[in-house]
Nucleic acid binder design. Structure first.
Length: 996
RNA sequence: GGGCCCGUAGCUCAGCUUGGUAGAGCGCCCGGCUGAUAACCGGGAGGUCCCGGGUUCAAAUCCCGGCGGGCCCA
């Protein structure tokens, strides 16, 4: 099943590994919680089942998996329960899209019950994709069998219990508030939701004059970007401390008087194109207070006639600034939180003529029945006609949009349910400070958010969500009852639909539940559902059914880690914190890892409309799983934005193929030589280790140590880079190259087995380390190599343990010596290519001058390695300067001065020819597909004396290198030979080989 | 308007905490190896370290001010 003598094919590898895991139940064994080992407690942030998983999700889930695997390999049990977010606006919108609905009315016509069932069905559909591509295929071993689901009755009961607790503490409130509404979804949104939807938008920016009632021919000039709110205007606000000017202007051929802030007069008159003007009077804002104006829609919107006694005058407010506008702010109490506050203070009427769907109602007179955006246009037109529009332009600004459907939001006053989290601000900050935030520089943002925290609007006028568990007494609507559990509900129920629990806890069924108590014989439910963030926010207890499984809950809470995208600072990270601090008095997590977003390779946000989304399914189809995983792991820090370029995955494929080949190399020779780690233990060879063996041991353990260090700080990219360098640089480029000669020796030498013992141990460690990034390939190699050589090793690499860092192996100086060694080799190669001497041609001498005596001394002791690498007869390492004679090429480098001789005497020449011959024979061997151990006979036909001499002097060498039993110099080559004609430096040579 | 992050080779990113001659991978060009072989290895070209100022013997690195990109808050 696991063979390494085949072509490297990642997708086949993954396929057979998946089968192995399935057949041997490895993920379940991996997840097993013994309660005997320390437990790493992870709380899964539930993905919303309203779409297909894409590369952004895969990134986040790869990190989750890497971290979980890491702790498992450190000897922990891991708590890895899955979870799904299945309700709320996101799901409803997908269903609406599917059914082709454009408004909430259509849902009602369709039937709430049918709609709810459609929602549930949609969730089922997407869950399949999430389970397969977002989880199992990715090899994210969450427990999906026991995954928590926010639509289940058991889960919803926790949200209810939480709210009942909030209610008991007097923090669940009902009140009029000005809130952002999505007119498309016809529901209010929370601050957290609004934060996610700021987008640039072009709006009209208009300056309007309100006629004064007290002064002849005089106007107050205000500025607004929301013309439609003028309909519900009730006052003008000025800053009591600013000075205002009454300006005599000539406008459209008439002379009149305008009030604006004094400091802005010049700028504004310029903007309005008023040629000549004159300030005739100035007043403090405070002095303007109480002055009356004529409402500009007094005729069009009859309602305002009724307000004339108690509104339509100048008020003062500190929030008025001079940054934008005129220093006079129009106040529409229903359409701005600040306006609302002012209205409360002055007792102004709160007029709201706009319904939740964005249409003006019958109170709006002339504007009744129109959509707010159209009203804006019409207001501008009307004001223009009436010559009340002083100036009009447009403005590009950040405007809140619905986070799910993209519709611009409107602010309007309505009755809503709140949790008074604002009173908890300090406690939340205090508890947050105890949490480790990765990266720490994002802590400020989180704190900043909490510092500015406002009360949490939790009611939504929607369908598919956790119902607000509030019932109101029919006879006395001031009486409220909050239900915490289904048991309680059943106990008090007077009427209840006969449906299963999971439906009962949803609209419309729950709406039919009528309760009865001693106080009141008929309690009717408030028809709201809850903000979906409350669902996932309660996961810290609901995921394990904590109100019933108290013991388990207490073992898990608080969790060690929660990790999601940066957008969740105000989403899930916050809702977890708020609910937990409210209910339990502390944060539900010890650390949070905040992940960056994924953008496309041009740095553009991925979106369906742009068509640049990379779906998990396509990604895996093309690249398999391990290569994208390693790519994600090493490319950037978890918290950085990642520009995802699928073409770059090739790089990680290359790394993985190198790993494959290294193991294949080891496997080939270890098998050939019957290496056994039980008899050829590393201990046995410790005093026979070559310097390169001691070097790779040191390098491995220092890399392992840094790997652990990085992982503990969630610097996953740095840990991955350590591992990649271990594979590519240390093992492939260096160590294997250095031990090749030793490994090729056919006799059973101790030095060969020493190399095997070292290489084997390091490869095992490398596979275990790498298993957190590339779980499939490492498993495959574990089975194909490690478990072939050690049958009693643990059955899966994922059930093994990371090796300990053996500090006694770490020798920084030795590592430095080898770094220097390879740098010198590099430079020699450079000098050779400059001098036109191929590596195959030996040089007489390499001179190295190092500044550091100790380094020079140590390097000198491994100069035989340099002689081998550089193909030099001699390497001289000194700290003395040497002369660069005319027969040398030299260079000064970072490490020191390096020179090589370029004279080629006859001896060297003969050796060079021998190598040339070897190379050609090797080429021919591979041409005829000979195996490593096949023996051959070589026939050489040449008339060149030097080549003949080379053959006779280096015959043994050539024979050994090419596994030839004999070499014949002959002018006629036997018929059954494979023959090729060659030219070696203009010398013609015909070579024939045959297998014997 | 405020806060945070980022700006280094054609591309993706290290280096910056603790100043000391600018790094890697990919791509490109050239070469090697042919016993890891549809693999592996080496070399080269390529940079105004976003701009300007300051501190310093010395700045990619520290400080100040801009510019550009991203995120967040108002």
């Amino acid at each position: 099943m696991f063979r390494i003598d085949v072509k490297f094919d990642l997708k086949l590898v993954e396929e057979s590994v998946r089968r192995f895991w399935r057949e041997n139940d490895i993920p379940r064994k991996w997840r097993e919680v013994t309660w005997r080992r320390p437990l790493f407690k992870f709380l899964e942030g539930p993905p919303t089942a309203n779409g297909y998983p894409h590369v952004g999700h895969i990134r986040g889930r790869t990190y989750k998996d890497i971290v979980l695997r890491f702790w498992k390999l450190r000897g922990y049990d891991v708590w890895a329960q899955g979870g799904w977010d299945e309700q709320g606006l996101p799901v409803e919108l997908e269903v609406e899209k599917k059914l082709g609905f454009k408004s909430k009315k259509e849902i009602e016509q369709f039937g709430l019950d049918k709609f709810a069932l459609e929602c549930s069905k949609l969730v089922d559909h997407y869950l399949e994709w999430w389970k397969k591509y977002g989880t199992e295929l990715l090899a994210l071993w969450l427990d999906l069998e026991h995954a928590y689901e926010t639509r289940r009755a058991r889960y919803i009961e926790h949200v209810w219990s939480f709210l009942r607790e909030v209610w008991k503490r007097g923090l669940l409130c009902e009140d009029y508030r000005v809130l952002p509404y999505c007119p498309r979804c016809e529901t209010a949104l929370s601050d957290a939701e609004v934060e996610q939807g700021y987008e640039d938008r072009e709006d009209p920016s208009i300056f309007v004059k309100f006629p004064s009632r007290d002064e002849e021919n005089t106007y107050y000039v205000i500025w607004t970007t929301t013309p439609w709110t003028l309909i519900d205007n009730e006052a003008i606000a000025v800053n009591p401390r600013f000075r205002y000017a009454k300006v005599k202007v000539e406008w459209r051929g008439r002379v009149e008087y305008w009030w604006v802030a004094e400091d802005l007069v010049h700028v504004l008159m310029g903007k309005f194109g008023v040629g000549s003007y004159e300030i005739v009077e100035t007043r403090l804002g405070e002095e303007l207070k109480g002055r009356r104006y004529i409402h500009i829609f007094i005729d069009d919107v009859p309602l305002h006639r009724e307000h004339e006694d108690r509104a339509h005058y100048v008020v003062t407010a500190d929030f008025v600034t001079l940054e934008m506008g005129t220093g006079l702010v129009h106040i529409a109490p229903a359409h701005g939180p600040e306006d609302f506050e002012v209205a409360r203070k002055y007792g102004l009427p709160v007029t709201n003529t706009v319904e939740a769907n964005g249409y003006f109602n019958s109170l709006a007179g002339k504007y009744s029945g129109k959509y707010w955006l159209d009203v804006s246009k019409q207001v501008i037109e009307d004001l223009e006609k009436r010559e009340l529009l002083v100036y009009k332009e447009s403005i590009l600004h950040r405007y809140p949009h619905c986070w799910r459907c993209g519709t611009p939001l409107i602010y309007r006053a309505d009755k809503q349910w709140f949790i008074r989290v604002s009173v908890l601000r300090d406690k939340l900050l205090e508890e947050l400070r105890k949490v480790s935030v990765f990266p720490d520089h994002l802590r400020d943002r989180f704190e900043n958010w909490i510092t500015n925290l406002r009360d949490w609007t939790i009611s939504r006028s929607r369908v598919w969500g956790t119902p607000l568990p509030v019932w109101r007494c029919r006879k006395d609507p001031s009486k409220i009852l909050v239900i915490g559990t289904l048991d309680e509900l059943r106990r008090l129920a007077k009427r209840m639909p006969e449906v299963e629990d999971d439906l009962l806890v949803h609209r419309p069924w729950i709406d039919q539940v009528v309760l009865c108590t001693e106080d009141c014989d008929e309690w009717i439910r408030e028809p709201f559902v809850l903000d979906v963030w409350l669902d996932s926010g309660i996961a810290w207890i609901a995921s394990v059914d904590g109100i019933r499984n108290r013991e388990l809950f207490e073992k898990l809470y608080p969790y060690d880690l929660v990790t999601e995208g940066i957008d969740q600072t105000r989403g899930w990270f916050y809702s977890l914190l708020a609910t937990s601090v409210l209910w339990m008095g502390k944060a539900p997590y010890r650390s949070i890892l905040i992940q960056g977003h994924v953008v496309d390779k041009y740095g553009q946000k991925m979106s369906k409309s742009k068509g640049n989304v990379i779906w998990a399914h396509d990604l895996f189809e093309r690249w398999g799983v391990d290569a994208p995983r390693l790519y994600i792991a090493y490319k950037v820090a978890p918290w950085d934005t990642m520009a995802f370029d699928p073409d770059e995955i090739k790089e990680t494929v290359r790394v993985l193929s190198i790993l494959w080949n290294i193991v294949k190399f080891a496997d080939t020779y270890m098998t050939l030589d019957k290496f056994s780690p039980k008899t050829h233990t590393l201990d046995k060879y410790l005093d026979k280790l070559a310097p390169e063996d001691r070097w790779i041991l040191s390098r491995f353990h220092s890399r392992l140590s840094r790997f652990l260090e990085h992982m503990s700080k969630y610097e996953i990219h740095l840990a991955a880079r350590e591992w990649i360098n271990l594979v590519v640089e240390d093992l492939s480029h260096r160590y294997i190259r250095l031990i090749r000669r030793r490994v090729w020796i056919e006799e059973e030498t101790e030095t060969k087995y020493a190399a095997y013992a070292v290489l084997y141990q390091i490869l095992k460690g490398t596979l275990i380390m790498g298993s957190i990034f590339v779980p499939h390939l490492t498993e495959y190699l574990w089975q194909a190599f490690v478990r072939k050589i050690e049958r009693d090793e643990v059955e899966s690499v994922h059930l093994s343990l990371l090796p300990q860092v053996e500090t006694e192996y770490i020798d920084e100086q030795l590592e430095k010596v080898f770094d220097t060694l390879f740098e010198i080799f590099s430079e020699v190669a450079n000098l050779r290519s400059r001098a036109g001497i191929k590596l195959r041609w030996p040089v007489r001498r390499v001179m190295v001058k190092l500044p550091d005596e100790r380094l020079a001394d140590q390097l000198s002791r491994v100069r035989h390695l340099l002689e081998y690498l550089a193909n030099s007869k001699e390497v001289v390492v000194t700290t003395q300067d040497f002369e660069c004679t005319p027969d040398m090429v030299c260079s000064d480098t970072d490490v020191g001065k390096i020179g090589i001789t370029r004279e080629l005497d006859k001896n060297l020449l003969l050796e060079a020819y021998a190598r040339e011959l070897v190379r050609r024979v090797q080429f021919m061997r591979s041409k005829v597909n000979l195996n490593v151990e096949d023996k051959i006979e070589i026939y050489v036909d040449t008339r060149d004396d030097l080549i003949r001499e080379s053959l006779s002097r280096y015959g043994d060498y050539i024979a050994t290198e090419t596994r030839a039993s004999n070499i014949v110099i002959a002018s006629d080559i036997p018929q059954d030979c494979y023959v090729m004609d060659w030219e070696i430096e203009d010398k013609k040579v015909r070579i024939g080989i045959r297998k014997i």
